[in-house]
Design a protein around this nucleic acid. Structure first.
Length: 352
DNA sequence: AAAATTTGACCGAC
DNA sequence: GTCGGTCAAATTTT
């Protein structure tokens, strides 16, 4: 069953890489199509495995999926940038699977064991997650003197190696667009700390931020601390402060051309959330919901948003996802509705 | 022209 | 007072 999890994560990884390369692939439909088919193949494979287990016992799959998330995470050695992507795309699934915010991969673990090479040629970042409460530099301020703002969001820290080619001083992409708003010399650190906020902060009131700083002892490794939640790419929440329609259109046009379109992969991520997360009746889901509320993420609102759909059993969702046959076009239309018609909102959001 | 970055000033927590 | 985080005007880039 661990292999199935690994497959699903591989699929997510491919989807993430596709998302990152979406803009580049606009002019290369063959590669784009092949990548999509790869992703579909991976998930079909996963579904078949789930089907097998489903025949064994109806609840077996679910129990195994939720058995020991932390243990699984350690076994899989999940790419933390993928974690961040999954976490922002489908928080409850992420929490269920990985107990997010407690991600801890011990030092000197075999980096890259979960590293998948894909046809898009994008390299998989070898990243290492560290606990936000690590007493080391970077969170020293919080451990030494818990400078707490009332509404300060939880910090999630990952270490990311510098790019292998090109300008190694630029921290690798993480799938989001950021605007730098400050830089500070930090006492006792060789390198300054850079402060970024989400580019879409104004338009979507997206409060996500990150701090990037090179390690003293390893200038080719960045420590990236994320704070706040991305609301800009979650179509259900984005218009919570509705901007003028023209601004949205402008923003979307700009987003489509300038960067990967997050909502495409978000659709896939939602399937994960349906399948893996917050399965109402299961005991594990309640704990994950509680953890979401307690650990400072936007847990309650996000988890509640999909609670209805989460009633679907795993196999039903997988079937719904792939039952349009092996035609990549049809499958893609289901998997990436926002890309095809940008109809996801109407399809999933049951607004009055 | 608009968007992004730079950088000194400012502010709140200690 | 120091320090880290943010603001915002100036500057650079697109």
């Amino acid at each position: 069953m661990d292999e199935t999890i690994s497959l699903i994560l591989h699929g997510c990884k491919l989807a993430k890489d596709l998302e990152l390369n979406l803009a580049n692939l606009a002019s290369q439909p063959e590669i784009f199509s092949r990548s999509c088919e790869d992703i579909i193949r991976v998930f079909i494979n996963a579904r078949e495995r789930l089907n097998v287990h489903q025949q064994d016992t109806t609840s077996y799959t679910h129990h195994m999926l939720f058995r020991e998330p932390r243990e699984l995470q350690q076994q899989q050695n999940i790419d933390p940038s993928l974690q961040e992507w999954l976490r922002t795309s489908c928080p409850s699934a992420m929490e269920t699977l990985f107990h997010q915010s407690q991600v801890l991969v011990p030092e000197k673990t075999q980096m890259g064991s979960g590293d998948f090479v894909n046809e898009l040629g994008s390299r998989s970042d070898h990243v290492q997650a560290i606990d936000a409460s690590d007493p080391g530099r970077g969170s020293s301020s919080s451990s030494q003197r818990p400078r707490r703002r009332k509404d300060e969001a939880e910090r999630r820290t990952v270490r990311v190696p510098a790019q292998q080619f090109g300008n190694t001083e630029i921290p690798p992409e993480d799938g989001f667009t950021w605007r730098k708003y400050g830089q500070k010399e930090i006492l006792g650190s060789r390198f300054p700390r850079a402060y970024y906020r989400c580019t879409h902060q104004k338009l979507y009131h997206c409060l996500a931020k990150k701090q990037v700083q090179r390690l003293d002892d390893d200038p080719y490794t960045f420590e990236v601390a994320y704070r706040g939640e991305h609301t800009c790419h979650m179509s259900a929440t984005a218009p919570s402060i509705p901007p003028p329609a023209t601004d949205i259109a402008q923003e979307m046009a700009q987003t489509m051309s300038a960067q990967p379109q997050p909502s495409a992969a978000t659709s896939l991520a939602r399937w994960l959330e349906f399948s893996l997360g917050s399965g109402g009746s299961a005991g594990c889901s309640s704990s994950s919901m509680a953890a979401g509320a307690g650990s400072g993420g936007e847990g309650p609102s996000t988890a509640g948003r999909y609670s209805k759909e989460a009633d679907y059993p795993i196999i039903d969702m997988a079937d719904a996802m792939f039952n349009s046959g092996s035609s990549s076009t049809n499958s893609m239309e289901f998997i990436f509705p926002s890309m095809m018609e940008e109809k996801w909102d109407q399809a999933s959001d049951k607004k009055p």
